[in-house]
């Protein structure tokens, strides 16, 4: 019969349409909230999603996986007197590995000796060149630069971030990437313990 195929297709759209409401009713019967809740968003991004698929940003947000990356930021530890102590040692690896070469680092030099001090004097990332590749975070040996989850950074002008704008506390990092953070902390502690053990072993021998 001519037109059967079209009707079949319309059946699919009709089903998709009614699915939304069936799903609404089923959530309502179970006494759960489908919209504006994390559970609802998670369900809408799962294999069982039916009917409406929209996640209403900004009221609701997609659940970001831990590895999600947007732009890089620098991690600092909170010092005793609230001073920001960047983890960065200005070793320059991130600037070397960055594919579009958008990282600019001025290394601090000791004014007396002229020898390099492991801390950046200036640090720039041109966010309008950065290709969000994540290489800087991947290859930084000091876990000092990480990829941010915050994507709401549109602005009315060009974005060249300086050190001040790049720094974010380690606690923030721990919050957005708990698994990575804990793994790195453990690795660091293990390394320190090994170093201490080695020093202990070496100390008696030396004395």
């Amino acid at each position: 019969m001519y037109g059967k195929g079209i009707l079949k297709g319309l059946g699919v759209t009709l089903k998709r349409f009614t699915d939304t409401y069936l799903e609404d009713i089923s959530w309502w019967l179970r006494g759960k909230k489908r919209y504006y809740t994390e559970e609802g968003v998670a369900h809408r991004s799962s294999k069982n999603t039916r009917g409406i698929f929209t996640v209403q940003y900004p009221e609701e947000q997609l659940i970001q996986p831990e590895e999600f990356r947007y732009v890089p930021f620098l991690v600092y530890e909170e010092g005793a007197d609230g001073k920001k102590e960047p983890r960065c040692t200005s070793c320059g690896i991130c600037a070397k590995v960055c594919p579009p070469q958008c990282i600019w680092i001025v290394r601090t030099n000791n004014p007396q000796t002229g020898k390099p001090v492991p801390e950046p004097a200036e640090f720039y990332i041109d966010m309008d060149i950065c290709m969000n590749c994540g290489f800087c975070a991947e290859y930084c040996p000091f876990d000092a630069i990480k990829m941010d989850h915050d994507f709401d950074i549109a602005s009315y002008g060009r974005n060249v971030y300086n050190l001040e704008k790049l720094l974010k506390p380690a606690s923030y990092y721990a919050e957005i990437r708990p698994l990575n953070y804990n793994r790195e902390e453990e690795a660091r502690k293990a390394k320190e313990a090994a170093k201490a053990a080695k020093a202990d072993a070496a100390a008696p021998a030396a004395s």
Binding site: P58, Y70, C130, F151, D152, I153, S155, Y156, G157
Partner: peptide
């Protein structure tokens, strides 16, 4: 009027940029 960094900006980031435009 509005610059949206990112490569590419995710759709949510784009919408965030559009909200900035509305504010403007």
């Amino acid at each position: 009027d509005v610059y949206i960094p990112g490569c590419p900006p995710t759709p949510q980031a784009l919408i965030a940029g559009m909200i900035k435009l509305q504010e403007k």
